[in-house]
């Protein structure tokens, strides 16, 4: 692209066999005890080992439970599960960049910025504690765009429709979205929503209110891409209109400002902006068609 890549960031997973000559490094973590509390920086020192990643550094921090100056502290909280970048749990801001902690190798980070690593929670989602955030909104968007195939039921109906290799190769990348939220974190159009429960409000009422708020805010690139995935599925497209209704409703695709950060940060390299453009086309046609069909 003409103006693309102004530098500033290291390309992810840049390769090099050089192991930096260090025996320990410092991790600065932005901590927050609970929603609504003030956040604060805390520094930890971690001994270096071969093949470490940010998760193993956090594991060591948890085991130590002590800051750089020997203060005993509660272990830092974070989310993770698969440790191989398929579950999407461990997204955080590492040296300012949104990415998975499990594939953030210490060796590479040290090349980037020797001796120090900075960890912050994602900024577009409410912090629950430390690096753990509440990404309900991200999943809620999948409900909003009806990201599923509306089959009749689960009894045997013989094989599904034939699909060409080419179709498969187009859909497969979209189906790899692991709901990690990087695309939302980096999107300038996706802004944080944090609601607090009123005293008088029941849990059900609160979650209904939250869902309603989420539904009227920007759905995000991942959901647009899922809508495209299911609108191109031979059975999924039977309710394509409903998905396009969702994408043209409040918080729909019109909110996208084409900054294209989403596609640049997506760890699964999902062609999000292609999906956005395809959805742009079909929503336009859909709205025109609805206009004339009135």
């Amino acid at each position: 692209m003409l103006f693309d890549y102004f530098g500033g960031q290291c390309p992810p997973y840049a390769m090099s066999d050089q192991h930096p000559e260090i025996d320990s490094f410092e991790v600065r973590v932005l901590r927050q005890d609970a929603p609504g509390e003030r956040s604060r920086w805390e520094r930890h020192r971690v001994t270096y080992e071969r093949d470490m990643n940010v998760i193993s550094a956090l594991q060591k921090i948890a085991a130590q439970a002590e800051t750089v100056d020997g203060q005993p502290v509660a272990p830092v909280c974070w989310d993770s599960n698969c440790l191989e970048e398929v579950c999407g749990a461990c997204t955080m801001l590492i040296n300012g960049r949104t990415r998975q902690a499990c594939t953030a190798l210490i060796d590479r980070l040290m090349e980037d910025c020797p001796g120090e690593i900075e960890l912050r929670p994602m900024s577009k989602f409410p912090v629950i504690r430390d690096l753990v955030v509440d990404r309900t909104r991200l999943f809620r968007a999948l409900t909003k765009v009806k990201a599923w195939v509306p089959v009749d039921g689960y009894l045997d109906r013989g094989q599904g429709p034939l699909r060409s290799m080419e179709e498969q190769q187009q859909s497969y990348p979209l189906s790899e979205c692991m709901s990690c939220g990087c695309c939302l974190e980096a999107c300038p159009q996706y802004t944080k929503i944090e609601s607090t429960q009123d005293e008088s409000e029941s849990d059900e009422d609160f979650s209904a209110r939250k869902s309603a708020t989420y539904d009227s805010a920007f759905v995000g690139a991942h959901a647009i891409s899922q809508a495209v995935l299911f609108n191109t599925n031979p059975i999924g497209k039977f309710i394509a209109g409903e998905r396009l209704d969702a994408l043209t409703g409040p918080g729909g695709i019109q909110m996208c400002g084409n900054a294209q950060n989403c596609v640049a940060v997506c760890p699964k390299e999902i062609p999000l902006t292609t999906s956005i453009a395809r959805a742009g086309r079909s929503t336009t046609l859909h709205v025109l068609k609805k206009w004339f069909d009135r």
């Binding site: 103006f3 693309d4 102004f6 980096a186 300038p188 900054a259 294209q260 950060n261 640049a264």
Partner: peptide, 11 residues
């Protein structure tokens, strides 16, 4: 934070 060309153009 994200100094990609398209993001700069967005801004």
């Amino acid at each position: 934070e994200y100094r990609y060309g398209s993001n700069i153009r967005y801004t």
